[in-house]
Simulated assay, not measured.
Amino acid sequence: MWYYSFAPDYTQNTIKLTTDFFNATNDGVVNLTFHFWSGQIVKYTFVKRGTSVIGMAQ
């Protein structure tokens, strides 16, 4: 859901995943794939354990 679970920041070239997103995510490995209008696809993986989140671009 737009701006509820994520919010793009075009000036910083980033995507912010919100607290609501992480609250709805189970602990473990999560793989995300972002599809952009330009056709670019970006994959991102993170591991969530409680309130700790460690992420890495692929």
Rank of each mutant, 00 (worst) to 15 (best):
F21H: 07
F21V: 00
T33H: 00
I54C: 07
T19V: 15
Q58S: 13
D27S: 12
T18Y: 00
R49E: 00
V42D: 01
I54N: 10
I54M: 11
Y10W: 13
H35F: 03
T14Q: 08
R49G: 09
A57R: 15
Q40V: 14
T25Y: 05
M56L: 05
N13S: 11
T18D: 04
V30D: 05
M1L: 03
V42C: 02
K16P: 00
G50F: 03
T11W: 12
Y3T: 06
V53K: 05
R49C: 02
V29D: 06
Y10V: 09
W37N: 05
N13M: 06
A7P: 01
N13G: 08
W2S: 06
V53A: 04
A7L: 11
T14E: 12
L32G: 00
N26Y: 12
T11L: 12
T45G: 00
V47N: 09
Y3L: 06
L17N: 07
L32F: 04
K43F: 08
Q58C: 07
I15E: 08
D20Y: 14
G39K: 03
N13Q: 14
N31F: 01
R49S: 08
Y4E: 14
Y4P: 06
H35N: 13
K43L: 11
A7K: 07
T14N: 07
N26T: 14
K43V: 06
N31H: 06
S38A: 13
Y4N: 10
F36Y: 02
M1Y: 06
F21Y: 10
K16L: 10
G55Y: 01
K43M: 03
T18L: 03
Y44Q: 08
Y3P: 01
D9H: 11
I41K: 11
T14D: 03
M56F: 01
V29G: 00
W2N: 05
Y4W: 08
Y4V: 12
Y10I: 06
K48R: 11
Q58I: 08
Y4M: 14
K43R: 15
M1Q: 03
D20R: 15
T18R: 04
M56Q: 15
Y10Q: 07
Y3A: 12
T19W: 06
F22N: 10
T25P: 00
A24L: 09
M56Y: 10
N31P: 02
F46E: 01
S5F: 15
Q58N: 05
H35C: 06
Y4C: 08
T45N: 12
V30W: 00
